[in-house]
């Protein structure tokens, strides 16, 4: 099957897509965008979080065919050219990145949270990121990063 979808603002087409393929496989293996990660592939870890028509989804739970004619934004599409998005900057600065495998998903989830709730409380941050597993950090520095990003966005 042919899949045509808009990814990070550009229309992309893939041919010979097997109908059982996920959006995650389409992005990673056919469109050269491996930023969304393949940690559990059943919607438990959030490491493959991308936007589908503006809504954060687990790309592993979306069939590639469901993305036809829709807009996908991945972690690769968040930075503005060479300059990192404040959420990305904050993750680096706060030490929220260790192995980093969870990071793309968490960056998208935090990006979504701050777009909806510019000044989230700690409980709100925890609720919003509860679908994203991290095995390295114990989450403390991820909270630090989201707080830092919120402050940065407020002053811009």
């Amino acid at each position: 099957m042919r899949v045509t979808t808009t990814v990070n603002g550009t229309e992309r087409t893939a041919d010979d897509v097997w109908p059982g393929e996920s959006l995650l496989y389409l992005l990673r293996e056919r469109l050269g965008l491996p930023g969304a990660k393949n940690a559990c592939e059943q919607g438990e870890c959030g490491s493959c979080t991308v936007y589908l028509d503006g809504e954060p989804v687990c790309a592993c739970l979306v069939a590639a065919g469901q993305a036809i004619g829709r807009e996908v934004t991945t972690v690769e599409g968040l930075a503005d050219g060479q300059s990192l998005h404040p959420v990305q900057e904050a993750f680096v600065e706060a030490g929220a990145v260790q192995c980093g495998f969870c990071t793309p998903g968490l960056v998208v989830a935090a990006h979504d949270l701050l777009a909806r709730v510019p000044e989230p409380s700690d409980p709100e941050i925890r609720e919003a990121l509860a679908g994203n597993l991290c095995r390295c950090t114990g989450y403390e520095k991820i909270l630090d990063a989201v707080r830092l990003a919120a402050r940065r966005q407020a002053t811009r």
Partner: peptide, 23 residues
């Protein structure tokens, strides 16, 4: 010092090449 990771930027932009990203 609290030096930042040299791979931090690649990891937050999705460009860092993990073993499962190789092609």
């Amino acid at each position: 010092d609290n030096a930042q990771r040299p791979d931090g930027t690649l990891k937050v932009t999705g460009e860092f090449a993990y073993a499962s990203d190789l092609w």
